[in-house]
Nucleic acid binder design. Structure first.
Lengths: 225, 225
DNA sequence: GTCTTTCATGAAATTTCTGTCATCAACGGA
DNA sequence: TCCGTTGATGACAGAAATTTCATGAAAGAC
C-alpha cells in the first residue's frame, strides 16, 4: 500500500532537514523542506501538505508567528512542533495556538517517525465519518441524526437528505428546483406539488423554526452562525 | 458553542481518574472513567468516545492487549497513552499499535489538557464528504445510497445504519447485541425478535448475498476484499 | 443419528414516512 | 388598498419501511 503522505519539514539546519527527510522517505513519505518561516509559508501556500514538521527556533522569525501565519493560510493544517524548549508553558501555548503535537529535542528519530505515522495513519473509522459538523449543526450520517443545538433528533430519509443539501450550501439560498433535483431527483420543477415545502415544514418542526430561512422567490437557506 | 467532547479515562487509580476528570470537566469535556481493561472495553462497546486516555500500567491486564482489544471494537478510536515507561521502544510500539499520542509520567496536567484540546479541536472548514469508500463499498451518506460493486442502490434508514456499522468493523464479526445496541439502541439483546436478521436479509437482497457473512453464534461480518 | 440452537425466509401486520390537497397567511406590485 | 403569487399549515391517504410471526434449513452438541 502506498502511504503517500506529503510532509513539509521546516528547519534552519539543512542537516536536520535531510536527516528527517531521509527517515521519512524510508517510511515511504514524500517530503519537502523549508529553511525559514518565509520559505515555509511560501511552500504551504503553493502546496497542500498532510503534515508540517516545524522547528520552533529559527532565524529571522519567531516560530510562534510562523505557526500563526501558517494556520492563517491553511486553517486546520496538521503541524508538529520540534523544539529544544521543554518548558510546559511554551508547550501549552503552541498546542493552544493550533499545533497538534510537540516534541522536545533531543528526540529519538524512531519516536518522531512513529508519531508521524500515528498522525497520518489512514483512519479506518473515518471510513464512515461519525459526525459532520457544519454551521453549528451536527449531522450524524451513520445514524441519521441531526442536532441543531437543542438535542439530537432522529430524521427520516428525505428530511436528512434535504438538510444535508442545505448544509452543503449553508448561508446561501438554494432554489427549490435545485433541491427538488438533488433530493427528489426531479428534472423539471414539479408544478402542482409542494412536497418540498412540506418536507421543510417537518424539518423545521423537528429542529426549530429559526434554522431554515425562506428566501421568497429564491428558495430556502440555512442560517449561518 | 459547547464542544462537549466525550472522553474515557482508564486508570486503576481512582484518584488519578478523578484528578484528570475534574480538569477535563473544567475544560468543558465530559468524561467517564474505567478502572481496568474489562471496564474500559465494556464502556467503549456501550458508548462512543471522542478520545480514550489509557494508563498503560494496570492490574489484571496488559495495557497493550487492552489497546488492541479496544481498537478491535472501535477501529480508529483516538487513544492517548499515559505511562511511566519512558523507553523509546515502548513508545514506538504503542504508537504503531494504534495509539495517537504517548505521554510519559510524571506529566503536567496542563500539557495533558492542551494535548487533549489539540486532538479534539473541531476541524475548521471540513467539507461535507459526499461519498465514503471503504472495503470496495461506496456509501453516499448524503443520499443514502450504497454501491457494493453492482451499481448504486438506495437504502432505507435502518439498512443504511446497519451497513454503516458493519463497514466500520469490516472484516470482523459484529455481535448481534452490539448491532442491536448501535443501530436500534437496545440495551439488552431483544429476546423474541429477529428485526436484525430481517434487516440483514433486506440488505443482502439489495446488495448481493456474498457481502454479509453470518458467523454462527458470533454475529454478522462484512467480507473484506 | 437425534436434538437443540441459530439463522433464513416469506407473508402479514403495524408503524412511519411521503405526497396531496384545501385553506390560510404573508408579501409585493400596481 | 386590492390582487396575484408564493409560502405555511394541518389533515389525510397512499406508499414504503419496519416488525412480527410461523416455518423450514443448517450447524453443532451429544
Amino acid at each position: 500500500m502506498t502511504t503517500t503522505g506529503r510532509i513539509l519539514i521546516v528547519d534552519d539546519e539543512p542537516k536536520i532537514c535531510s536527516f528527517i527527510g531521509r527517515a521519512l522517505g524510508a517510511a515511504s513519505y514524500q517530503s519537502d523542506s523549508a529553511r525559514d518561516g518565509a520559505e515555509a509559508l511560501d511552500a504551504v501556500t503553493r502546496n497542500r501538505y498532510d503534515l508540517v514538521i516545524l522547528d520552533l527556533v529559527m532565524p529571522g522569525a519567531d516560530g510562534r508567528q510562523v505557526l500563526r501565519d501558517l494556520l492563517a493560510i491553511r486553517p486546520g493544517q496538521q503541524v508538529m512542533v520540534l523544539s529544544c524548549v521543554a518548558d510546559i508553558t511554551t508547550k501549552v501555548e503552541l498546542l493552544d495556538l493550533g499545533a497538534q503535537d510537540y516534541l522536545t529535542k533531543p528526540f529519538s528519530l524512531e519516536e518522531l517517525i512513529a508519531r508521524v505515522k500515528a498522525r497520518l495513519r489512514p483512519e479506518p473509522a473515518r471510513g464512515v465519518p461519525e459526525v459532520i459538523r457544519a454551521n453549528g449543526i451536527v449531522l450524524d450520517a451513520a445514524h441519521l441524526i441531526a442536532d441543531a443545538g437543542s438535542g439530537p433528533v432522529s430524521l427520516s430519509r428525505l428530511e436528512f437528505m434535504l438538510l444535508s443539501e442545505l448544509v452543503v450550501h449553508a448561508g446561501r439560498a438554494v432554489s427549490k428546483d435545485s433541491l427538488l433535483a438533488s433530493v427528489w431527483g426531479y428534472r423539471q420543477s414539479d408544478p402542482g406539488s409542494n412536497i418540498l415545502d412540506a418536507c421543510v415544514r417537518r424539518l423545521r418542526a423537528k429542529l426549530g423554526f429559526e434554522l431554515i430561512k425562506t428566501v421568497r422567490g429564491k428558495g430556502y437557506q440555512l442560517i449561518t452562525r
